[in-house]
């Protein structure tokens, strides 16, 4: 099929193939994410209800004009708590994904290029990855005490080895590439080979991986809170709202389903966008259809 590769321009696997499939879906996902992101950003400025305001008179109300999602066992407005919760959840998601990416890329670059480092680093990463991530996260928070910092640590520690492995894999593959060997022959300093010739190639897979990391971090934060070891109960996060709703689930399922819906929608949207990014950025998979 050499004819095909020479007639086309560079390997931009032009939109035609992946655009029709799921394009509408990922646009919807982006829109949903935008709405949730915006409400997290400006929602607290706009809505009057205080997510922390305890109101014993209005306990466990059904959804109404006054309380859109009803109220919880302490009479707090669930809608306000969900909107404020978006802030916490997205913040934790983005921050921990960013941390994992930075840490993972740095270690992955070094492990991929320097063989001596590789053996030791990858054994340590294998060790961390061998501990089921939820279990590790739960244990970490339990030991260190729950606050934003430890929750972030509990999410980043099990997640960043995946980034290390990804980056290391790309770098290992690139070591054999003729253009990298050409750079070695030109006496290009190692740091420059890493930054100029290798790092840019990790960008596309990292963007894709990053989106999935955000999704998984949002989920992990919720799970931690749900199990009672996450952020302190007074912080409105989706996981905390759900955790508090467990007791009254049989009479007020909305206490779990409203925040659960937002949580699921957010994670779903991020995953859909991640899929679309992979289709767009990874030509190998994009051509397979």
């Amino acid at each position: 099929m050499s004819a095909l590769t020479t007639t086309g321009s560079p390997p931009h696997h032009g939109g035609r193939r992946f655009l029709p499939r799921g394009h509408g879906l990922s646009a919807c996902a982006a829109l949903v994410l935008l709405v949730i992101g915006l409400s997290a950003l400006i929602g607290p400025l706009v809505i009057a209800a205080d997510p922390l305001h305890i109101d014993p008179v209005n306990r466990l109300k059904l959804p109404s004009a006054a309380f859109w999602f009803g109220t919880d066992a302490m009479g707090r407005d669930v809608f306000a708590r969900v909107v404020y919760g978006a802030r916490t959840s997205l913040l934790v998601g983005l921050a921990s994904a960013a941390l994992s990416l930075v840490l993972g890329t740095l270690i992955g670059l070094l492990a991929g290029y320097f063989r001596l480092l590789d053996g030791v680093v990858m054994r340590v990463m294998d060790g961390i990855m061998a501990i089921p991530s939820i279990v590790l996260a739960v244990a970490l928070v339990a030991v260190t005490g729950a606050n934003l910092g430890t929750v972030l640590l509990a999410i980043v520690l099990p997640d960043f080895p995946r980034v290390v492995r990804l980056v290391r894999g790309v770098i290992l593959g690139l070591r054999q590439e003729a253009y990298v060997e050409a750079a070695i022959s030109l006496a290009t300093p190692t740091w420059r080979i890493l930054l100029r010739h290798m790092l840019p190639n990790t960008l596309a897979p990292l963007i894709v991986q990053g989106s999935f990391l955000v999704a998984s971090a949002v989920l992990t934060e919720a799970v931690l809170s749900f199990l009672g070891v996450g952020l302190p109960p007074e912080v409105p996060s989706w996981g905390n709202v759900i955790a508090e709703g467990r007791t009254y689930f049989q009479i007020r399922p909305g206490l779990i389903f409203f925040p659960g819906l937002f949580l699921a929608l957010t994670v779903l949207s991020i995953n859909l966008i991640g899929d679309a990014l992979r289709d767009a950025l990874d030509p190998k998979l994009a051509t397979r259809r």
């Binding site: 003729a178 750079a183 022959s185 006496a187 010739h197």
Partner: peptide, 23 residues
């Protein structure tokens, strides 16, 4: 070896892989 690299250069087989596509 680095200073001596200058005197020894190579041209590879596959011209599609031997040039960094981003430069």
């Amino acid at each position: 070896l680095r200073p001596h690299r200058r005197r020894l250069q190579i041209v590879f087989q596959d011209p599609f892989r031997s040039l960094n596509a981003r430069m």
